[in-house]
Lab assay of single mutants.
Amino acid sequence: QVALSRTQVCGILREELFQGDAFHQSDTHIFIIMGASGDLAKKKIYPTIWWLFRDGLLPENTFIVGYARSRLTVADIRKQSEPFFKATPEEKLKLEDFFARNSYVAGQYDDAASYQRLNSHMNALHLGSQANRLFYLALPPTVYEAVTKNIHESCMSQIGWNRIIVEKPFGRDLQSSDRLSNHISSLFREDQIYRIDHYLGKEMVQNLMVLRFANRIFGPIWNRDNIACVILTFKEPFGTEGRGGYFDEFGIIRDVMQNHLLQMLCLVAMEKPASTNSDDVRDEKVKVLKCISEVQANNVVLGQYVGNPDGEGEATKGYLDDPTVPRGSTTATFAAVVLYVENERWDGVPFILRCGKALNERKAEVRLQFHDVAGDIFHQQCKRNELVIRVQPNEAVYTKMMTKKPGMFFNPEESELDLTYGNRYKNVKLPDAYERLILDVFCGSQMHFVRSDELREAWRIFTPLLHQIELEKPKPIPYIYGSRGPTEADELMKRVGFQYEGTYKWVNPHKL
């Protein structure tokens, strides 16, 4: 086992960053958080920038500027975001240094004079007029057009580079997404736009490419001749908990499936790229999406959770019991969808996408189930092999396979070949997804960000279904809070070829 401390991990990262040409360590950078008073800024962006600063992973002359409508001070920003920093008493001095680099400007999102004030403020910072500028839009999409237009007109660096990070949702359907994309691309070049999907920053999602293309053993079996089906799962054990009003506007397909799960599907299904260059990788992902037809209604199961009468606390409440959810809402909190990649490698292999709230566990994984062994000599005792990439929690890679049961006879039983990170790298604290992705933006690497043509294809696949749901308002199937979801989803999976045995229990190697 390799035991690495946080300091050692960050030392390795620093070495990698400083050796590259793309990370300008000594240049002045300004990180501007648009929507600095909001939840995302408070819980994710400010803490992430602090962790990067604490670990010495930001360029040395980096300033952080918050911008929002609320009249706040840096002290206010500190008060609301610091509880999420997880700072230790030993880091007190470092924390003071961090907040000394912070400033805040209040202004409207659609007022040109406010942006001119913001620009004057940035120019007044040390070497601010020639600094590289990175704008993070932690804002609702309704203000994107006004904000990007004003940034472009008043706040661009004339000497350094300018980059803009856009948070999902990128529209509600193909038409609104196209409108937003066309607007942003009329102001910024594609190499300046970073559409963030934080799932692409997760260690195991990034590991998929290495697993596939750096190991000879997987190449020959990664196709329709050997793989019976692919299941991509995202499960949350909690409901909307008072935030249903926002969720109800989008629903589970827009929230998770059309982005996170579809991105994971691309990494499983794509061909080997010409290189690890950002556009070479994204070219292959677009090719996969172009091979997927629009979702067919007979390959869809929609569910909505109801309270568990035997549960406790939140578990007793259904989705419609959330006071922020519109009365009688038919918005799905669970969806199972089957897609097919219609190309030579994957023809006929079902890709089953499942996601839901208020389920029995927290889990995100990719599961490849292989065909049955031909010419069975073990009297149907063999179960199908599976390769599982567990994204969260407890990152893991393992192969479910058959071995001989101890004893006199040739009785096979299920076991696993474990390729888990935790076994080799004991207690290594890896940077989280937002840390990686923000560092990628500083480096100018777009590999783990969504390109406009990729986004367009993703919406093309799901828009007809979303429009049909909005028009017909089908009643989702009720499922109990804390269950596996509607049984109809299991029946759909069985119908397209997935075999669920229920006889195997994964042993978490992190707890051995």
Rank of each mutant, 00 (worst) to 15 (best):
L430W: 13
K505A: 15
V366K: 01
D432Q: 11
H260A: 15
G497D: 13
I377T: 07
V301C: 08
P326K: 11
Y481E: 02
A396S: 14
K287A: 10
D432H: 11
G356H: 01
T316G: 08
P476T: 10
V349P: 01
Y305G: 02
T324K: 12
Q369F: 06
E395R: 14
E454C: 13
M270L: 08
E435L: 07
Y425F: 14
S415E: 13
T330Y: 13
K404W: 14
A374Q: 13
V366M: 13
D279Q: 13
P431T: 09
D347T: 13
N277C: 06
A364R: 11
H379P: 12
I352H: 02
F378W: 09
Y425G: 13
E361W: 03
V338S: 07
K429Y: 11
L465W: 09
E284A: 12
K285T: 09
V428G: 12
A336H: 06
V450T: 15
S329V: 03
D372F: 03
V496A: 10
T330S: 11
W346D: 00
F334R: 01
G482C: 04
Q446V: 04
D453V: 02
M270W: 00
I438H: 00
A396I: 14
C355A: 08
L492F: 08
N298V: 09
F409L: 15
Y479G: 02
D372K: 09
W459M: 14
E314W: 08
T276P: 14
S483M: 06
V373Q: 14
E361K: 14
N427K: 14
L261C: 08
Q369H: 08
K317E: 15
V341G: 02
R354Q: 13
L339N: 00
V268E: 01
I389G: 02
V341F: 00
R460W: 01
Y479H: 00
K383N: 14
A269N: 01
L267C: 12
V338W: 01
K473F: 09
I438P: 00
Q296A: 09
M264N: 05
L261D: 01
V507R: 12
G313R: 11
A458C: 14
L320M: 11
E294K: 05
V373E: 15
F449C: 07
A364T: 14
T333V: 01
P309M: 10
R362T: 11
H467N: 11
D372Q: 09
T463W: 07
L359E: 01
G485A: 02
A315Q: 11
V295R: 03
P309S: 07
Y340P: 01
A335V: 04
A396D: 13
A458V: 12
D280G: 04
T333P: 00
M401P: 03
E365G: 03
G307T: 05
Y340D: 02
R495I: 07
A269P: 01
K494A: 12
Q381P: 15
L267V: 12
W459P: 01
W346R: 00
V441P: 07
M493K: 13
E488T: 07
R460M: 02
N394L: 07
Q304I: 01
G502W: 10
Y319A: 00
L387C: 08
A332D: 06
D490M: 10
P323I: 09
R460H: 11
A396R: 13
P350D: 01
I389A: 08
V325G: 03
A358Q: 00
H379Y: 11
G497M: 15
E294H: 05
M402H: 14
E294I: 13
V301E: 04
P309D: 11
K317L: 06
W506F: 13
D310E: 12
K363Y: 06
G313L: 14
R327D: 12
K404C: 15
Y425S: 14
L471E: 12
L465Y: 14
G303A: 06
N360V: 03
Y479W: 02
